[in-house]
Design a protein around this nucleic acid. Structure first.
Lengths: 175, 175
DNA sequence: ACTCACACTGGACATATTGTCCACTCATTC
DNA sequence: GAATGAGTGGACAATATGTCCAGTGTGAGT
């Protein structure tokens, strides 16, 4: 590889996808209701190939599902915030995360490095409603302190396509 | 539920979904490759109903797509981090976000309240690779300072289903 | 050089699903 | 009491699916 910039290290058994995989994923992202047959036509390969690729991508865990993407805003939840919190440290599996999972407005939870212990993404109907959600979080057993960051705007919404398109470039062939 | 806590305020024109919508979304989330016909059978309604519901949910923007869900980990990107940054404030639309959008490893960008200006989620192959990604971010014109938080674990991965299931309960009927 | 394993092709088939009509019912609104 | 909107249940042709198959090309290993 004649890459000038240092190439990222890669685990030997890291899974990669090739260019056809990437094109298939991109195609399905653009028009998700497409059937296997249509995909094969658009990609210029046989139907069986598309079928096999999809099966393999799913089997390898690259494609984890085709769930409908839901707009929380369309549901009336216009406020997104990130809540960082310190928790009472407990050995073993984290019971705090389990309790947070019971709150519908908590969309995701991460354990993190740095001054705080957990970072979670929450949504609320309004800023005032956010207070209610945060109250619910503070009420969780083991939560000591929280600090919130409100997302005012989302210039780049969640996306993976550029990454997907990039992978085959970075790993054209296993040498 | 005879909720004691005060009910969240709601915009008058806020879109809500009913229980059938919620069941449909939950069903499709669980088994996304299901066809309209299968859905109608499972939900015990006519096929036309499911078709109409799906069309309406899409038209109202509740369902924005059915894109394949990609596991960045399966692609070899095992590290997720949140990068907060201060930027040089510029009037008008934010050129920094546009430049960040060019970096494939940047999965989403928010403008935020608090000490920092932007929060973005990034992935990298390893911790060492994360340094490369962050370097790329710092190189972006207008970025003054960054601070990173690494996600060690994700006890609650992104999900909307509990919220979706909750909406019809909170707004059974427009009064 | 030979063979094996594997992916892809292009075709076949019966079955299932889709898109699109229709007429009818029921509840709500005006 | 009519009009509106949503749901039902049925129909139809067109299309896609799941699943076979034999044949081809390529790389790996011997």
């Amino acid at each position: 590889m004649s890459s000038v910039s240092p190439d990222p290290p890669r685990k030997p058994y890291t899974m990669t996808i090739d260019e056809l995989d990437a094109r298939l994923i991109a195609l399905l992202s653009a028009e998700p209701r497409l059937g296997v047959l249509e995909c094969s036509r658009r990609l210029g390969v046989a139907r069986g190939t598309v079928q096999a690729r999809l099966d393999r991508l799913a089997a390898r865990g690259v494609i984890t599902g085709f769930g409908p993407d839901i707009s929380t805003e369309a549901l009336g939840y216009d406020v997104t915030a990130f809540v960082m919190m310190e928790i009472r440290q407990i050995a073993g599996h984290d019971p705090v995360a389990d309790r947070l999972a019971l709150i519908p407005e908590v969309l995701e939870v991460h354990t993190i490095t740095g001054g705080s212990d957990l970072l979670c993404r929450v949504v609320a109907r309004t800023n005032a409603d956010l207070q209610r959600v945060i109250d619910g979080i503070v009420d969780v057993q083991g939560v000591l302190r929280t600090s919130s960051i409100i997302a005012l705007d989302t210039p780049v919404p969640y996306r993976v396509l550029p990454l997907v398109a990039d992978v085959p470039r970075r790993a054209p062939r296993e040498p």
